[in-house]
């Protein structure tokens, strides 16, 4: 302090100097590095294990890199690993998941965005109540609805089919997605909506020509939420489908948890990584848009 006072005339001038190795920085970066290592270590172990052969794994050095890199476990996991009597690997589960994912994501986002738009801009009598009921739906534990849904799906003849699962995912995505879209559309200035009405655009005209083009970030957020949620779903998959239509997660479980024969750790690791690849890839590609969209949707609520 005394030093500062003495040199007031000359030294404090321009930007204040900052030290790279200040105590705060060491604490901050130290913590971040430790946390990052903590989360990356399992991934590292999985990757190296999946690239080893079984003899090498039996040596028990789980942290050491593979002495001899082999992709055989990956090939086996994808195309020949056995679940029960089927021995065509994860590939079938992958395509099942894709066939569930694409219509579920598309339908849930399309319906929820229209819901959100209607609730934000075309208020009707009781719309607030409707919205509240919808939001309450997000807080009801899934378990209470499992059995009633089995009966509903059986009655409409969709039990065990891919479309039954699509329907379940679409319905369960509705509360949170509607909330997301409603908040985003509420934040778009109302004058814009009024101007479009004066210009003769109706409900759909405003939705497609004004709202949609302005809402790319929130659509990306909704897509990421839905793709990861539906891809990672296990509970609905195992209940509402049958072995032929099992999604990838269920099949992965069946491969990893099969009790007969030896545990092929390398194949299990490869299968797990393959299953996780889709959401992982999505985050890498759209992480920035995701953060931006979440922030935009959260501003007003």
């Amino acid at each position: 302090m005394v030093e500062n006072v003495v040199e007031t005339d000359t030294v404090p001038q321009g930007p204040r100097p900052r030290r790279a190795f200040s105590r705060t920085n060491i604490m901050l970066y130290g913590t971040l590095i430790v946390v990052a290592l903590y989360y990356l270590l399992p991934l590292y172990v999985m990757i190296v294990t999946s690239l080893k052969g079984m003899p090498e794994i039996r040596l028990g050095n789980i942290f050491s890199p593979p002495l001899e890199v082999t992709f055989e476990p990956w090939v086996k996991a994808w195309s020949t690993a056995c679940t029960g009597i089927n021995c065509d690997g994860l590939s079938r589960g992958f395509w099942n998941s894709v066939r569930i994912l694409v219509p579920s994501v598309f339908l849930s986002i399309a319906i929820a965005s229209i819901n959100g738009y209607a609730l934000a801009r075309w208020r009707f009598k009781g719309s607030e109540l409707f919205f509240s009921i919808l939001i309450v739906g997000a807080f009801i534990p899934y378990q209470t609805m499992l059995y009633p849904l089995v009966i509903i799906l059986r009655e409409i003849g969709l039990m065990g089919s891919l479309w039954g699962l699509v329907l379940v995912h679409t319905v369960f995505g509705m509360p949170i997605l509607t909330l997301l879209f409603r908040n985003y559309f509420t934040a778009i200035p109302e004058d814009l909506h009024k101007a479009a009405r004066v210009d003769g655009a109706g409900f759909w005209g405003i939705y497609f020509r004004i709202m949609l083009p302005m809402s790319l970030p929130i659509f990306v957020v909704a897509m990421i939420l839905q793709v990861t949620g539906i891809w990672n779903d296990f509970l609905f998959g195992v209940i509402y489908t049958k072995p032929d239509t099992y999604p990838m997660t269920v099949q992965l479980n069946n491969i990893v948890n099969s009790v007969q024969g030896i545990k092929e750790y390398n194949v299990n690791m490869a299968a797990t990584l393959l299953t996780a690849a889709v959401p992982l890839l999505l985050y890498f590609v759209s992480g920035k848009l995701f953060v931006r969209g979440i922030a935009a949707g959260a501003v007003k609520g």
Partner: peptide
């Protein structure tokens, strides 16, 4: 609004 034969200008411009 579009059938009333009016044009409207808003404070916030409200341009698309």
């Amino acid at each position: 609004p579009s059938e009333r034969g009016i044009g409207m200008v808003f404070q916030s411009y409200a341009l698309y």
